[in-house]
Design a protein around this nucleic acid. Structure first.
Length: 234
DNA sequence: AATCACTTCAACCGCCTATGA
DNA sequence: TTCATAGGCGGTTGAAGTGAT
């Protein structure tokens, strides 16, 4: 014996909702309020499963829903909350008024997850992957990270943004944000370097020049990681 | 213009939990 | 305590849209 279905599905409509169905459901909920979802379709004159009605209402028809893309602030909040809560989308959604768990889950899977992976950050653990995936063609995170930055066309960085390796790779939770310094962020050796050892950003920049170059070359990376609350920089 | 590949997101499925008898 | 039921949740699917060739 298999599990009993949540409702009698014989003769029920599936697939995309029509405007007429939406109208019936909205009218019923606005008139009667949210009550027992099992009886809603019958009372509203719909050939739908109660679960389907609840989903349609909460994810699409609710009048307090925000439409459109997530703002940068919302994206950062989702990443931050995901680091704390994991895939508990409904909990995450409860912190973003007008957004649904389904919407946030979809956005995570289609946008944020990919961007974190491209940054070399594991979207599940929020820790740096080793070795990092290298992609030199795309922007990273909500903010564009320059892969090659010039200063009056005099100095070109030999590094791509994804070449930045985080030396501090120990486990941590969001309540214990690690504090790392420039000496702990490693860059791969350059072809011209005398040694094959990775060098720190601090070393790289001190050899090179001044803080302006530091900000121009790595400021966006720091800003983004800092915004994620994954790391604090000293 | 036609076809193919890729992306997006609404909706479904099945499991888990809370509640009441 | 056990069982049945409903609601809620997260994972997954597939149709529609979009861009590339």
């Amino acid at each position: 014996m298999g599990r009993q279905p949540c409702c009698d599905k014989v003769g029920l409509t599936k697939g995309p909702w029509t405007a007429d169905e939406d109208k019936k459901l909205v009218n019923f909920i606005l008139t009667n309020g949210q009550c027992c979802w099992r009886v809603v379709p019958k009372l509203a004159g719909l050939l739908r499963c109660g679960k389907s009605c609840r989903l349609r209402w909460t994810n699409y028809l609710r009048p307090d829903l925000k439409r459109g893309l997530l703002s940068d602030f919302e994206k950062k909040l989702v990443i931050d909350l995901h680091a704390q809560l994991g895939n508990r989308w409904s909990k995450i959604a409860s912190h973003l008024p007008g957004r649904t768990d389904n919407e946030i889950k979809n956005h995570w899977n289609t946008h944020i997850k990919k961007k974190l992976k491209k940054m070399g950050i594991d979207p599940v653990t929020h820790q740096h992957l080793s070795p990092p995936e290298v992609d030199t063609t795309e922007e990273v995170g909500p903010f564009p990270v320059k892969s090659t930055i010039s200063t009056n066309d005099k100095i070109m960085s030999p590094f791509k943004s994804n070449d930045v390796l985080l030396a501090n790779n120990s486990n941590f939770c969001i309540d214990e944000i690690p504090v790392i310094g420039p000496h702990e962020i490693l860059l791969p050796p350059t072809p011209s370097a005398s040694s094959n050892a990775a060098q720190s950003i601090e070393g790289y920049c001190s050899n090179k020049l001044n803080s302006d170059i530091w900000d121009q070359e790595f400021g966006d990376v720091f800003d983004f990681l800092g915004d994620l609350n994954c790391f604090k920089f000293v």
